[in-house]
């Protein structure tokens, strides 16, 4: 497909086209957030609203098989510093 037709020429375009949509963000420290993307910059600093954060805690001491405990919390409006971002995934268009 012609790249100019889709509007995608460089990686950041994928994030730009996700503005005002719900995105999935994987972060350092076994954290993930989903939220509606309102702003980003070249450092991948993000501003999200209606955010749900998921923290994965692997309990290796009591459960050697690696049971994962999951902690969730919600926040209204959140700035995420770019240096913690591993990936940003646009909403699945099913």
């Amino acid at each position: 497909m012609d790249p100019s037709a889709t509007g995608i020429q460089e990686p950041f375009d994928l994030i730009r086209l996700s503005l005002s949509e719900r995105v999935f963000v994987k972060l350092r420290g076994d954290r993930e957030v989903t939220g509606i993307l309102h702003a980003y910059d070249g450092h991948m600093n993000l501003i999200l609203s209606d955010v749900e954060e998921t923290i994965m805690i692997v309990d290796t001491e009591n459960a050697p098989d690696g049971t994962v405990n999951v902690a969730k919390r919600k926040m209204e409006m959140l700035f995420v510093r770019g240096d913690g971002v591993i990936l940003v995934s646009p909403p699945s268009r099913a």
């Binding site: 730009r16 503005l19 702003a39 910059d41 409006m77 700035f79 510093r81």
Partner: peptide, 21 residues
């Protein structure tokens, strides 16, 4: 800093998206 929780009533999301584009 990892996160900053912002007061959502003081953030104009439409303005933010336009400025980001």
């Amino acid at each position: 800093v990892r996160y900053v929780q912002l007061p959502s009533e003081h953030v104009d999301t439409q303005l933010l998206e336009d400025a980001t584009r």
